[in-house]
């Protein structure tokens, strides 16, 4: 029972940086742009977010600057793919390397320092409910904001005019152009939004989830975020479910180890990844649904004047 409560309580926070970055990437991909620099953006914002909280104590300032820096990197990426018509995959990786390098360089003076973790938000009354209270109503504020952002995004993409434009641009930029939409502008904003979310994700990872900065601490989580978008077949709700599922599996490895079932730990550590593959295989059989949601122009640059 302790084990299950531990997993469920921790899942939301563990999944939050993955989900934040994945939601940002989802919007970029919906507009037809694949940005592989998430890892680098998260790292840079984690380093600077940490540095700012460490020196000023202000989380708000840290999140703002972190998001700003990640947006700056995503603007570099946007310039490469939209002004210079460079390949999206290569540009994303290149900008990602710059971000990783900058994070290590700027974070040098803060290596392995820690912060006081901000206390979780305790929703009055509700958090006193046994078991469920601690799982659902004693999380930090970013967890709740992320869930809200997820549902908000779901509505925007499905039901709002902005969402419609975004989808049309991602489906077929030429048609979007002919309909009078500014394709490059839409894509630029979508990329910036991706940067913003990756920035928040990075700052969350280093100042709230694990209040520590250490070079390389993002450790492939940007890639996981990318995988979550595909896993969720470009649908917000599925991305959210995928993120929380993966977060739970990551914690299950550690929790089950404490029980010592006689299984070598390496097998336990492999489980989240193996389970993800199995779940993916089960849910992917409905090809039509995937095709309906995948942005057709993903990865292809658009040039308005030809």
């Amino acid at each position: 029972m302790d084990t299950i409560i531990f997993i469920l309580t921790g899942t939301f926070a563990t999944a939050t940086p993955l989900l934040l970055a994945a939601l940002g990437e989802l919007v970029a991909e919906k507009s037809g742009i694949i940005n592989l620099s998430i890892e680098g953006m998260m790292a840079l914002s984690a380093a600077m977010g940490f540095a700012i909280v460490y020196t000023t104590g202000s989380h708000l300032l840290a999140f703002a600057v972190a998001a700003g820096l990640a947006m700056l990197l995503s603007a570099v990426f946007a310039t490469l793919v939209m002004f210079f018509s460079a390949n999206q995959v290569a540009s994303g990786l290149a900008v990602g390397i710059l971000g990783l390098g900058l994070s290590a360089l700027l974070g040098r003076d803060y290596e392995s320092l820690t912060l006081q973790a901000p206390s979780a938000l305790s929703v009055p009354i509700l958090s006193d409910i046994p078991i469920l209270g601690s799982i659902l109503f004693q999380q930090d504020i970013v967890v709740y904001m992320t869930i809200t952002a997820g549902f908000g995004l779901m509505w925007i993409i499905q039901h709002s005019r902005v969402g419609l434009i975004l989808r049309i641009v991602g489906e077929n930029p030429h048609i979007a152009h002919n309909l009078g939409f500014n394709v490059l502008q839409v894509r630029f904003l979508a990329i910036l939004f991706g940067g913003f979310m990756a920035g928040i994700a990075g700052a969350y990872a280093s100042t709230i989830l694990t209040p520590i900065w250490s070079q390389g601490m993002i450790l492939g989580r940007g890639w996981i975020a990318l995988a979550l978008v595909v896993f969720g077949t470009w649908r917000v709700l599925r991305v959210m479910i995928g993120a929380y599922l993966f977060g739970a599996l990551l914690l299950a490895d550690l929790a089950v180890q404490t029980l010592n079932l006689g299984i070598p730990s390496q097998i336990m550590t492999s489980m989240p990844y193996a389970m993800t593959i199995v779940v993916l295989a089960i849910i992917s059989r409905d090809t039509l649904r995937i095709r309906l949601n995948a942005p057709v122009s993903l990865g292809q640059n658009y040039r308005p004047n030809h």
Partner: peptide
């Protein structure tokens, strides 16, 4: 510092693509 060359590599790749 060991991280500076990574930043520089980032510059090189970005300017190459541009």
């Amino acid at each position: 510092p060991a991280s500076a060359p990574i930043v520089f590599q980032g510059f090189i790749l970005i300017f190459y693509l541009a």
